[in-house]
Design a protein around this nucleic acid. Structure first.
Lengths: 216, 216
DNA sequence: CAGTATTGACAATCTGTATTGTCAGATAAC
DNA sequence: GTTATCTGACAATACAGATTGTCAATACTG
């Protein structure tokens, strides 16, 4: 009875496990193919061929192309965010150190993985409201890692001005990254980090300045 | 013979004039429709209906959908850039004044025209290499208006660092605008301008600082 | 080994849109 | 009023890709 629960094994794997593996293969293949021809140019067929699977298995794991895009995005970005958070934490309490650590890791990873870089920098805009929502959420996380939201004594979420500062900061960093990637990494990482950091500092100091103005 | 040159008049108009007018109607309709359903959701048919023209006239003026998108983009952005340049010029020699004048005009226009705003803030990314090139060019113009490139004594184009600073600045401004527009203009124009300006100041001061470092 | 679950290849269908073509009716020139 | 030009509606075609369905080959189980 203990083993009757499990489906028949293939290649030493559970039905569940096999399905999970196929899902992963599809995600990896998708990142690869998106990197080559872009999300819009990527057909279900091409992704399945890259994954060495047939369309059938595509629809086993994903309702449609968009679902795979979102899964691929979360796959890549989720992992990156963990790393970034760890790097920032290693920077201790010094905002400047945290910033530099996180940015350095960010641009380093971008350089190591050009294809995922395309997927989540370029491809991910204006596909659909659902995809945009996923992206916005990821950017918010990114922003909070770079410049942790100040603990406002009373209110839960930060003010409208602070939000726009975050948005501007992330917009600057992403735009710089996009350019850097699309030009095939002309400058060394530390130079790009320095430039990006100067924009992040705006968000840090402006937020302080504004809070001071209110409190004084 | 003088009049035999001209084609038959319809509605008091030359063949050329009629064609030009239809072209304009299509561009206006496109901006309208893009604003409603996005470029991707906009079919040739829908745009023609909005323009009160049939598909035939679409292909008379444009080779395909993309050509119309580019035309619409240039139509909107070209006009805006003229205005921005004039506003900046009115700010005289003070970089800060120029910046503020241009940004104020920019965000004011954005608020006045929500639909064109969508077209050239949201819709215009990742459609095709041709469209991206048009956009990049427009952003460069925008950047040069906000912070005119320093007259480097010898070299013609600015250094790599200065380019990334421009890119970051424009990225920040656009991201802020995008958020502001998509949330239906929650803050007054002057507040948004102040925040955007703080990012632009980075590009101004950093560029100076770097030049000083080299010259000293 | 017999039997069944699983897989892979591929055909068939469906859908949506771009693009081209047809034609009758409207408009201006003479 | 007659004729050539232009216009608007719409049909016909072309096409690409998603999604579903079929079936024989294969891999495991007992």
């Amino acid at each position: 009875m203990a083993s009757s629960r499990k489906a028949r094994l293939y290649g030493g794997m559970d039905a569940e496990e096999r399905r999970a593996e196929r899902r992963l293969k599809l995600i990896d293949a998708a990142i690869e193919v998106y990197g080559e021809v872009g999300y819009r140019g990527a057909t279900v067929k091409a992704i399945c061929e890259a994954a060495e699977l047939t369309e059938r298995y595509f629809y086993e794991s994903f309702a449609n192309s968009e679902a795979l895009l979102i899964a691929a995005y979360n796959h890549v970005v989720g992992h990156l965010h963990e790393e970034l958070a760890a790097a920032a934490a290693a920077g201790g309490d010094d905002p400047e150190a945290r910033l530099r650590a996180a940015l350095t890791l960010y641009f380093t990873r971008l350089k190591e993985h050009p294809k995922p870089a395309r997927v989540f920098l370029l491809e991910i805009s204006g596909i659909s409201p659902a995809v945009d929502a996923v992206k916005l959420d990821a950017l918010r996380v990114f922003s909070d890692i770079l410049v942790p939201p100040a603990r406002d004594p009373k209110g839960s979420d930060k003010g409208a001005a602070a939000t726009l500062l975050s948005i501007g900061m992330v917009g600057a960093v992403i735009s710089i990254a996009l350019r850097w990637v699309s030009k095939h990494y002309p400058q060394p990482v530390e130079d790009v980090v320095a430039i990006a950091a100067s924009f992040c500092r705006v968000a840090l100091t402006e937020a302080d300045r504004r809070r001071d103005l209110r409190l004084l």
